[in-house]
Structures are given as C-alpha cells and as structure tokens.
Design a protein around this nucleic acid. Sequence first.
DNA 1: CTGAAAGCGCTTACAG
DNA 2: CTGAAAGCGCTTACAG
Lengths: 343, 343
Amino acid sequence: MATTMREVAEAAGVSIATVSFVVNGSKPVAPETRRRIEEVMARLGFRRNMVGRALASRRTRIVALVYPAMEHKLGGSGMEFITSAARTAGEAGYHLVLWPVSNDADELTELLGQGLVDGVLLMEVQLEDARVAVLRDTRTPFALIGRSGDLTGLVYVDIDFERTMEQAVAHLVGLGHRRLVLVTGSQADASFRTYGPYVRAAAAYRRIGAERGFEAVIVECEQTTDAGRVVGDQILRTWPETTAVLVLNEFAAPGLVSGLLRHGMRIPEDVSVLSILTSAEMSTSVDPALTAMSSPGAELGELGVQALIRILEGGDALPPSLLPATLVPGESTGPARRSPPGR
Amino acid sequence: MATTMREVAEAAGVSIATVSFVVNGSKPVAPETRRRIEEVMARLGFRRNMVGRALASRRTRIVALVYPAMEHKLGGSGMEFITSAARTAGEAGYHLVLWPVSNDADELTELLGQGLVDGVLLMEVQLEDARVAVLRDTRTPFALIGRSGDLTGLVYVDIDFERTMEQAVAHLVGLGHRRLVLVTGSQADASFRTYGPYVRAAAAYRRIGAERGFEAVIVECEQTTDAGRVVGDQILRTWPETTAVLVLNEFAAPGLVSGLLRHGMRIPEDVSVLSILTSAEMSTSVDPALTAMSSPGAELGELGVQALIRILEGGDALPPSLLPATLVPGESTGPARRSPPGR
DNA sequence: CTGAAAGCGCTTACAG
DNA sequence: CTGAAAGCGCTTACAG
C-alpha cells in the first residue's frame, strides 16, 4: 500500500542508499539526482516508514510519559500538560506514548524491556522513587517532572516553589496581611508521604516566614472539598486572627472558601484566600473567583520533553528548569481587615 | 545490551524460529524443547523487541488517540478517559500514542503516513468531520468516541444521550418539577456548530418534553463561569416560573449556581440545578455540591480501545456502545417549590 | 557523489 | 516438531 524507499529508488533510477541520503540529508547528493528523487517522492507520496527506520537506526523516536495510574495529582491542568508534551514531541519528530503504571517497579521494567521507547519522562516523582532506580539500572535516558530526593546527575524540570511562594506571600503582604495560614495537601496517605510539592512549598514558606518575621502556620488537609470545609473551621477556631489563607491543594480550595463563607466570613473583606497551583477552570468555578498562582502545566510539559530529547540527541544536558507559577488576579484576595471580623 | 532471540536460540541450541514459536505460542513445540527455551529466556531476562516484531509482522500494536489540540471539551474527566484508554491498551499488549492535531486533515494524513500506528481512536468527532474522511481514504482502522453524522459502517462508542436525559428529567419530575430549562453549550463557535453532544441532548430533551407534555425550553451558553451567571439571570427574567435547570455545560454550571444564589434564589429550595456530564471534582467544588449525571469517562476510554483492538485483531466489529451517565446525588436538587420563590 | 551489502530483531511460509 | 531462509523498510559503514 504505502510507497517504500525501494520503490522510490527504482522509479528514480538510484540506489535506496541515495534515497536515504536525501530523505535524511545525511550525505551530500548531486543537485540533479536530488531533484529527481524529490520529484519521484512527491509524485508517489512517499513517507519514510518509522518502524523500518527505528529498527535500522536503533532509535524509535518514541518517548514514554510515565505517571501513577491511580492518582490524578496533576489536577485540572493535567490535559494541558499532556497535550503540551505530546505536541512538543511531535514538533521534534517524536511520538509520546502514555504509560500509566502502578508504583510497582516491575511494570516499568517490563515495559522498558520491550525496546519501544528511547527515553522516559517521569512524572509525579516522589522524594524516594523506585522508578528512578529502574531507569538508572536499565540505562534508560530520562527526565523528571518534579524532583526526587537525590538529584545527582538528574535532568529535571519542576515548579519553582521558592519563587512561587515568595510571590504568593508578597501579594498578600502587599495587601497588608501579616497573619497567614498555609494549607497543604495531606501526607497521611503513604503515597504522599514524601510528595515533593508539599515538602518544598512548606520549606519555602517557613524560610520566608522566618525572613519576614511572621509565624509560618501550616495545616495539612485531604484533597477533598469536605476536608477543605473542615480546615476552614479549624483555622477560624485555632487562629482567629488570620486574615489570609494560602491553599496548595486544588481540590480542597473550593471547600475552604465555602467553609469560610458558611461561618459568615466575607471573602475577601474578612479573609483573603489565595490558591496555589490551580487550574483556571477550578479558580473561576468558585464564587468569589479565586485569586490564584496558576500552574505552569503547559510549560512544564514542553520543557520536560525538550530536556529529554536533548539527552536523546546527544546534546549537552539542559540545566534544571524551575518555573514559577504566575499570579492570576481573582476576587478572593483584598486588603487585610483592620479589626476582628464582624458578624 | 538487551537479549535478542538469536542469543536465546544459541544458548538453547535451537533455531530462532523455534524460540519465536514458544514466545508467540504460534506453533506446537516439544515439551522438553519448550522447557529449555523458557529456562534460557528467564535466565537471560529476554523480552521480545517490539520494533523487530512490528516490522516483521507488519503490525506495530500501537494505536493513536487523535483529539483536537486546542480545545479541552473533555472537561474534568479528560485525564480519567485518557488513562483508562492507555491502561486498556496496555492490558491487551498495545500502546497508546497521543496525537493532539489541528482540525486540519493534512496533519493527520502526515502522521498516518509514518506507518507507526495500526489504528486510530478519534475523539471529539463533529457531525461533519474531515478526519473521518482521511481515515477512510487511508484505510486506517478506527473507532470513534462520539458520533459523526453518517454512521454507515462506523464503529463507535458514545454517551447515551437518550437515557441520560431521560434519567435526568425523571429525577427532577420525580421531585415534582414541571417547569424546566435546559442549558447547553454555545454552538456559535464554528467548531461547536455541529457538536454532537449538544445536538443529541437537545433532541432527546425535546422528544421527552413532547412525550411528557412540557415545554422544552433550551438556552445556549458559552463554556465559562461568567456566561453561566448571565444565563442564570436570563432564566429568572424570561422564565420566572422555572423550578429546575438542567445544565449540559460543565464550565458554566458553577456560574449558573452562583448567579442564581446572587439573585437570592436558594438552591435547591427555590430552584434545583442538575449538572449533566460533569466530573466529580467540578460537582463537589460547588456549594451546594451539584447533583450530577456523572460522565462515564473511564468506561468510554475502555470501550473505545476495546472496539478498536477488536477491529485490528480481525474479530467481528463490536456493536456500537452507548453509555448513559449515572446520577450522583448532591445537594443542588430537591422537591419543587409550590409557589413563587420568596425574597 | 553513488552503490552494493550487511544488518537492525523479529515473523512466517516452506521443507523436511 | 524443527530449521534454513527470505523478508519487513530502513540506515550505515565501506568501497569506489
């Protein structure tokens, strides 16, 4: 059905090697010969078969996106991330396969053994991650989205938690807030125990608090609306002087807002809420619309794929990229109140 | 690095053909020979290389998920859908590549020409879709998620809009509602002009209205929170006797709720809201939590891949599957009010 | 600048 | 039941 290189070669009266040279630009070819070959290729609608090419060149130009099957910590920006990764791969002549795997290292080993992919983009990396060991042992080129504990020799892109938290705090402090609470995700669940984002954001927050001289209050909370409501409660009872809450927990943020509203708090007049690493859909679905530090999902996907392909093409490794989230104004933050909230 | 079949054959003292027979179970092999080969394979950690296999068998066992790059009509259940599709493929020994393409048919033609995939799962199909023509012309096996206009000879899975709308209406009518409004997505945008879900849901709704003897009021609305608020307004002004609203527009639903609340309506005491084809995250992020007809995202992904693989393996085509959404109780629907809403 | 040839790792008629 | 051989569609030293 599809035209092969051999057919092109015959029709152009050359060897298939020569056709290969013009297709790949891998060796100089006489202008007239090249013209003839190109004309034939266009006429026959030739496209080089990726499988033959892969077998001969020992490079499939396929990369795998490996992520935990069960969870969707990616949150609302998941599709954005994945689409961006796939498009970036496509633009570089690569393809992206999806490998939603269990945490079990064996499944990844099995998949790698099939020889289908040249490299792996590993997501949702935990501070200790068995999959990183598998990739190293099998000498599979890989890049991380997010960071594991030992960064020696690793290529990764991640969110810049330092700058993200700094901007978040600066936004609130600029509005006069001094009494803040940070709500992160729960790490009670084993798979979250060493989940980088919470750990790093909390660390950055503590540092900033120390520098600016405020107490860094941090509360953990499950990734659900209900848990968000409960935390709203808890904050009002335990730290009644709080004027602003930062939430790094996309699925709890709406609950936190409605929890505060139900207690008669006005947002942002009585309490400001700033949601960190949130998708636009989630931010605007809440009333009042959340002011948010918007997740750089698409950029992470693009940079991650670029970093991986760079390794595959033998270039110098890209330096680690850290991307801050960007502040997207909403209606949930405003000037700090001067006195205790009125009822 | 990786062990090849030839190495296994040598170590076991047989031909590579025989190794192939035991790996594939494609021909009977003497028990003792088989045992020896299996022992060697285990010892050397042999895994059959997919690329060599693909080239020789003329089947890559890779399928592509083709979807429009720019839009994310999948909404909140997008990741769920894609993950389910990838896992189902994996369980059948296939891989799933992601092809976010423009609506431009050329890009798809180009990708198909590379010979990388055995078949295509086509998403977000419009009632008239150029990509379907490309797939037919290139004789690429494919299955649809959603239906295009001409269904002759097509394999597809889709949401069962008839049953979904019937259940939705039955839920509300059971609560005493008789004055309903259906809010769908806007079709002003060209790419939505012939977007199946809106067309089919509206048609089903009209039929049900006619059967049950109520007026089928339908309003279109952009896919944003703000547009949802405006529509809330419009409904209260134009059809003040409305006691329940059905929304087939995930991103407008939160706005519709807050719009109604801002006008002093109580939900569900004054007006019930039932959100159709919504993700759990979106439903629970709203206060009050939305009663919803939950999108069968994961099931669609699974069935779509199964239908496609069935074609690839030469089995009888699966009959079209239509999956209804399932009612997930929330707090946004309740008994119809008896009199005009109080202020 | 161009070609003949080996080879990538498998599958699959064809013989025996 | 097993093997020798051709071949899938390319790439890539190696010669010339």
